[in-house]
Design a protein around this nucleic acid. Structure first.
Lengths: 105, 105
DNA sequence: TAATTATATCAATGCCTATTGATATAGTAT
DNA sequence: ATACTATATCAATAGGCATTGATATAATTA
């Protein structure tokens, strides 16, 4: 009999969602961005300057993160301030923990 | 002043390692394989049949996992039995938790 | 209005890697 | 030795996506 994780619909769906999340954060610049934002919300210019990243590339990665719901943005004058969506991160962290936790001491 | 995660050598190194780990597990078939093996060690033929995956492709993904140290293998007659390296998984899980945890309730 | 600053979009390129088909290796059984 | 089974390797292809350069949009200031 096939194991649950190959058959059970909910298990398969959870795994797919988890993989989607992992694909988003498994990019160095994006993970760095999340680190930066975790500390404090920041405008795009701060982010790309801190990371020595091209402005447009930074903008691209922010879009990826935002489309997935991991960050939000608000306009403030000329600047756009990005901040982290803790709840969403937490949601996916929990999903992920199903696959990484309970590997015991 | 640039935030720690952009400058501090150890922070940057940890992030790189974490990203390497994420790249390994952010592939659906590989995450499934880890799920399967977590349940119980298995030979390659069980794995690819459970996952409806080509034999050679399964072999390829197993190699990726093994090269990174997440699984081990031993020969048993004609078969090769793969098993999960709990300690290694745990090590990287901890690293990853630096980036995902403490997002509070 | 014109110029400047901050951000986003678009098109093109290149790289990485999953996938496939064919074949090789190696253990086992007849 | 031959045939068979299980696994691994190799070469080629294809698709996705990060990166780059150029340009557009939008807010602000002079």
């Amino acid at each position: 009999m096939k194991p649950k994780c190959c058959v059970d619909k909910k298990s398969v769906a959870n795994l797919s969602q988890t993989v989607e999340f992992l694909k988003i954060i498994s990019e160095e610049n994006r993970l760095k961005i999340l680190c930066l934002l975790r500390e404090k919300e920041k405008c795009v210019c701060d982010i790309w300057q801190y990371l020595d990243l091209a402005q447009n590339l930074t903008s691209h990665h922010l879009k990826v993160l935002k489309d997935f719901g991991l960050v939000s943005s608000r306009q403030e004058g000329l600047k756009v301030i990005y901040s982290i969506n803790k709840k969403v991160i937490k949601k996916y962290s929990k999903l992920l923990n199903n696959y990484l936790n309970s590997y015991g001491e």
